[in-house]
Nucleic acid binder design. Structure first.
Lengths: 225, 225
DNA sequence: CCCTGTTGGTGACATTGTCACTGACGCCTA
DNA sequence: TAGGCGTCAGTGACAATGTCACCAACAGGG
């Protein structure tokens, strides 16, 4: 049973629940389980069968692929108000999880039992819509990753990352070159080289573990390509 | 209304329908629409909203991404007994199609009205299971594409393609270098170069528009990496 | 037999990936 | 405070891949 305070917090982030019928809402909060995770916790290992569907209230989760050689690509991130679809699809047919997931920050959220996820599907139209929307958004997220990796130059993709930060009002990115490389699926050396060029061209300032965007217009232009 | 002959043909390829309840089966075949497509027909353009859910009886569809520069990557293929999930997920929430699709061979299949897809979801458990299985398989298909593109050398990926042909009992592949490049998301020149090396190493024989696998063991070994 | 579109080959160069190594920095502990 | 250690970033050399421009071989139609 979820406390009333957490319930209203949840409703803020997941508006669909407010459109569900009262009986469903009651059942939902009765069955859901509240959890907290520290930053950097492994949520799902490759091949592991997922135990629950997670709905994130606060924090950021990162879902990624890991190569045998140790390289990484981020498939997508899970923010507050979202849920791990891979988990969802795994729950639906008991497959194993085809990627890894970690908490990038501390995470708070609700866990739903797999049996409930499926059972509720026909109990409430809004719940169904919510799950479907999630699945299809993730599908297109991952397709964009294919597009990025297959077609775009890395300098352009780095610029895109910076633009995302700018959109969130942050002109400083606190990440190491290795972090960024893992994000875009490249290697640290390549990222370092390109960032060195960015520094020389006056687009950014770089220091240990953080990057400051100087010429945001040039970054925007580059990301445009 | 689908003719009895086509119904039994469909049941062979989509066994789930045999496990559905009789009323559902009747409704299904009453509402479904039979269609045929020639080879090379455009099924879905990027950004276009999909009008129907297609269940393929015979033939092969290819779903791919196209870059502005004209390069391509194949996301997945749809064979007999399968369905276009992207279409499915698009239907569920009226999004536009995030990729392109063409018929690689002539295709025969059934079309389902979007309204029905959704409506049926809670009418029959087997139908629900079928759609979910499809969605989650496609998701992992596309994740493997990310893995391939981000982490693997192209010679290895070409070898993998050849292994797929060998698995189907075909030691000759009737494709142009450009076709193969579009499949793996590379460029024709690169494919040509690598195939030239394969020829020099005695792995394949190459002629205009077709490739014959000579040393299948070496191909298998290479694909293993 | 010529014309034309398709297919494949090639060299040159830019971009990216990999490997091995180095130096700089921050933190901990003796 | 000095030394030790791990993290972070920079570099050169070379391999793999992408891009561009161009050419040659081939097939089929007129």
């Amino acid at each position: 049973m979820i406390s009333p305070a957490r319930q209203s917090e949840f409703k803020q982030l997941f508006p669909f629940i407010k459109r569900c019928n009262p009986a469903f809402i009651e059942m939902f909060f009765a069955q859901a389980q509240y959890v907290e995770l520290p930053a950097g916790a492994a949520i799902c290992d490759e091949g592991q069968i997922c135990a629950h569907l997670a709905l994130v209230i606060e924090g950021i989760g990162r879902v990624y692929k890991l190569s045998p050689a140790g390289r990484e690509v981020t498939l997508y991130r899970i923010y507050g108000g979202e849920s791990c679809v891979l988990t969802a699809s795994c729950i639906m047919n008991q497959d194993s999880f085809p990627a890894m997931a970690v908490s990038e920050t501390a995470i708070r959220g609700l866990l739903i039992n797999p049996a409930n996820v499926k059972d509720w599907f026909c109990r409430d139209d809004e719940w169904q819509r919510f799950i479907f929307r999630l699945l299809s958004h993730r599908l297109s997220d991952i397709i964009s990753v294919v597009e990025e990796v297959a077609f775009k130059r890395i300098d352009v993709r780095l610029a895109e990352q910076f633009v995302k930060s700018l959109d969130q009002g942050k002109s400083t990115i606190n990440k190491t070159h290795a972090d960024i490389a893992a994000d875009v699926g490249s290697s640290r050396e390549v990222v370092s080289r390109i960032l060195r060029d960015f520094v020389l061209r006056g687009l950014i300032k770089s220091s240990r573990g953080s990057i400051e965007i100087i010429d945001s217009q040039a970054i925007l232009d580059l990301a445009q390509q």
